[in-house]
Amino acid sequence: MNRPPGEPAARVELCRERDLAAARLAVSKLLDAMGARALRKTRFVTAVSEIARNALDHGGGGTLEVWQLARPARIRVLCRDAGPGIADLELALTDGFSTARSMGKGLGGARRLVDEFRIESRPGGGTTVEMVSKL
């Protein structure tokens, strides 16, 4: 996944549980500043919460970066972890795929909440999730 030009508008290290709240807040603030609609914002921040929790719980922590995209105005989030990776992505994106703390609706749910969803993962090589949403 290519990094867009320039610096991210925000970067949150995901090491502890509190960082999930920080990640949600950072994205929420940026969406407010960009003038996103309430529904768009709720959907996107919820999706961010799911993938950030995934990185923390299964990836042993990671980094979340937020970008503001122009023409048309969109928000983009990149979440990477250096964890064990996901062996079967297809399965992980299926509702009901069970994990420690979610109901197995996290990843598949996040995908439904955003306009663009890309995931890259290989066993032992960590996981990167990219999500883009219009405002």
């Binding site: 309430a38 529904l39 709720t42 959907r43 919820t46 749910g109 439904r112």
Partner: peptide, 14 residues
């Protein structure tokens, strides 16, 4: 529950 939250939960199948 806020409208946007209700809609999102339904989307998450919850």
């Amino acid at each position: 529950m806020r409208p946007a939250v209700a809609m999102t939960l339904v989307e998450l199948d919850m």
